[in-house]
Simulated assay, not measured.
Amino acid sequence: MHLGLYTAPLHDRSLADALRVVADTGLDAVELNTGGFLPAAHIPVKEIDKDPAVGKDWLSIFDGTGVSLQGLNCNGNPLHPDQRTGVAHAADLRRSIRVAGALGQSRVVTMSGLPGSEPHTRQPSWVVNAWSSRALDVLEYQWELAVPFWQEIDQLAGDHGVKVAIELHPQNLVFNPPSFLELVERAGTSHIGVELDASHLFWQQMDPVHVVERLGAHVVHAAAKDVRINPEAAWCGVLDNSFRRLSPEEQRTQIGAEEWVNEWPQRSAWDFVALGRGHGADYWARFLTALHAVDPDIACHIEHEDTSLGAVEGVQQAAVVLLEAADLADIPRQG
């Protein structure tokens, strides 16, 4: 098993510096962003896509570091009804698959995407609870758009020897195990799997260990990110819209055409936290055990989004817990 880091929190430094941070924590792998919501800060994707020989030379940066490349990440919304975002994110995903093949990588992480509710809309529409017949009409329309897109992506992934790992993420058509299995059934895919990010399952009251055990070989990649449920959840539940819009004068992250990340609620129902702040090493040991049973060579990468900790500090704290969990589970490391 490979235990590593998705390097997005270290985008402010060079890849060489990021690899030193990872190695110093005892982790042995990285996952690099290649487009979508975030830029490709640590990998020259356009150059590699144009000339695969560039990729072979570029890979030498990993030599002697004790860290290997174990996956690319292109999280975005390739089905966004605003074509300025949807077309760009879909193109990033296709390029990421081609680049993965050129680099000998077998995993590209992404999201299923989310269309609008009907033709000519410009905003995605997430059906949270399909209690009305109209909501089912919306879902059927969205599936009509998603199926041919994912059939095309499945074919491209197969052509390049890649598995596309869909993160089960809210505000996507595929956000839980049943919706993933519906995609597989509707589209007849064979190169689409799941990136099991435990954090989004936690706050939706799913058990990541149970999900891994039931999905089995559909799980092809994993993320170690923790969640803490706060007392405020007793008041507002876990579906909380008390976010604050950030102004153009404030530091904010652009994720699409005229779209930015909002400020997290001050009195949040739940928070993303470093490993160990929501669930202890014993839980993560069970998580790693379940993953190892599915694929002994699987990669599980820390995602650091604990805003109370700095980038390096958060990675270090999470790594301590993840490595302790691996020891408790007696998981062999690939290195």
Rank of each mutant, 00 (worst) to 15 (best):
D51C: 07
P52E: 12
V54W: 07
V54S: 05
D57L: 09
L59A: 05
L59P: 02
I61L: 14
I61G: 03
V67R: 01
S68K: 13
S68I: 11
G71T: 08
N73E: 01
N73Q: 00
N75K: 02
G76I: 04
N77M: 04
P78R: 02
L79G: 09
L79Y: 04
H80I: 09
P81E: 10
P81A: 12
R84V: 05
R84Q: 11
T85F: 02
T85S: 13
A88E: 07
A90M: 05
A91E: 11
A91K: 08
L93S: 07
L93H: 01
R94H: 08
R94E: 15
R95P: 02
S96K: 03
S96M: 09
I97R: 10
R98N: 05
R98M: 06
A100T: 14
A102Y: 15
A102M: 13
A102W: 07
A102K: 10
A102I: 11
L103A: 11
Q105L: 04
Q105H: 03
S106D: 15
S106P: 00
R107E: 04
R107L: 07
V108N: 05
V109G: 04
V109Q: 11
V109P: 02
M111G: 07
M111T: 13
S112P: 03
G113F: 01
L114F: 04
P115F: 00
S117L: 11
E118F: 11
P119Q: 12
H120W: 09
Q123S: 08
P124C: 08
P124I: 02
V127W: 10
N129R: 12
N129W: 11
N129G: 06
N129C: 06
S132E: 13
R134N: 10
A135D: 15
L136Y: 09
Q142W: 06
W143S: 02
E144P: 00
L145T: 01
F149C: 04
F149I: 00
W150M: 00
E152Q: 10
E152Y: 00
A157P: 06
G158P: 06
H160G: 00
H160S: 09
V162D: 05
K163T: 14
I166Q: 08
I166R: 03
E167S: 09
E167R: 05
E167V: 13
L168K: 06
H169E: 14
P170K: 06
Q171L: 12
V174K: 01
V174Y: 10
N176I: 00
N176Y: 04
P178S: 12
F180A: 04
F180P: 01
L181E: 15
L181F: 07
E182D: 12
E182R: 10
E182F: 00
L183V: 08
V184S: 10
A187F: 08
G188R: 02
G188K: 06
T189C: 05
H191V: 05
